[in-house]
Design a protein around this nucleic acid. Sequence first.
DNA 1: ACCTGAACACCGTTCAAGT
DNA 2: ACCTGAACACCGTTCAAGT
Lengths: 230, 230
Amino acid sequence: MAARVKKDESPRTPLTPERVVSAAIELADEKGVAKLTMRGLAASLGVEAMSLYYHFANKGKILDAMVDAVFAEVELPAKDDEWKPAMRARAGSLRSVLLDHTWAIALMDSRPDPGLGTITHHDAIIGCLRSAGFSMSLTAHAFSVIDSYVYGFVSQESGLPFQSSEELADVAGGIIESLPVEQFPHFSEMVAAYYLHPEYSFAEEFLVGLDLILDGLERLRAAEVSDGES
Amino acid sequence: MAARVKKDESPRTPLTPERVVSAAIELADEKGVAKLTMRGLAASLGVEAMSLYYHFANKGKILDAMVDAVFAEVELPAKDDEWKPAMRARAGSLRSVLLDHTWAIALMDSRPDPGLGTITHHDAIIGCLRSAGFSMSLTAHAFSVIDSYVYGFVSQESGLPFQSSEELADVAGGIIESLPVEQFPHFSEMVAAYYLHPEYSFAEEFLVGLDLILDGLERLRAAEVSDGES
DNA sequence: ACCTGAACACCGTTCAAGT
DNA sequence: ACCTGAACACCGTTCAAGT
């Protein structure tokens, strides 16, 4: 009640864009983006909702900043790493960052304004590929196919209502039971014989596809070098 | 004002789940999912918002049904089509359906309950690959890598704030201008030299990556056949 | 069986006002 | 400069009530 908050023990640390964004990311990680409200976010910072509007024009700007911050978490290749292990490691890092912040994938679709974190990221990747002798157009192809694959894979992986393979078995079992098996013979067979197998692993499935793509790019690069393109 | 709607000219056709779902899809196509509200959807059907709750438990169920209906639009391979052209055509069909209903990708992430349309779809694809001699595990790999790629590609493509390559040039030009070029040399070079090129085309970029993947699968299949796996 | 009105507990955002 | 209270125009959903 009383106005007794003197001494410089800073009654509360002042709001900054950075504090807002990291609180927002934390909140989204815990409860999902759907539950990320201006009022809830403000409360988690010990402040009123309207204070946020002093630092951000609207909720959309906060979402943009969250996406950019997530991107900045991804490990970047050094410019003269070998391209293949570098791309492989970076794809794995991107996957794990996106799995940590599953809401980010859906957000990226709806807010394409690239921030500085995103551009820094892109620049490093293009640089690594160009140094490895990729032509401009092959660099663009490589970037497109790798990123499409990673986003698509993680978005399917994270959309599924389970994490461990035991949970997978439970869910898949449930689906199978309630399904007219004779109407979907191949699907049923597949679920029963493959996804229910205890050693099924998203991490391995991810690497199979990724290596298929990287090997394909390696072949294109070799062909390009022998053709002498730029 | 008066109660004058007799004769069986049916003052309004009765609500059915199908009518609700197709009105919802139309509305989402026109204005985006964000603008798809229970009140707005009801209004577009000449009905009050609460009427929808007689046919669907909640908004989530409507979203589930929308996703399933979109999936049912995708062209399916016949069981004994050659696998490669069949997968190529189906990937193209999936891309174009998803481009027609860009909201569907984001929705699929958040609502993984597969409906009958989705399962029918999966069943046909698995059947086609199995008939072509793919082992169970290679079928799973193929499915995973192709779909991940298509979803990821389209989600990036549709997230961009332009459609034609002239618009691309405009936007990319704007980004470049406002960017500290010396800080992002590779990114700037790429945008200037490649994406700004007038003949850049998403459709072609899509096919380059897709064919890279299909060729890789072909190689794995050949290796499998000569090994005699099942 | 099918549809509705009123009401509840929420949203994001504005605007004028406080310190 | 930084934060806030009250208010506005929205949401999804419940529940009792109408035909």
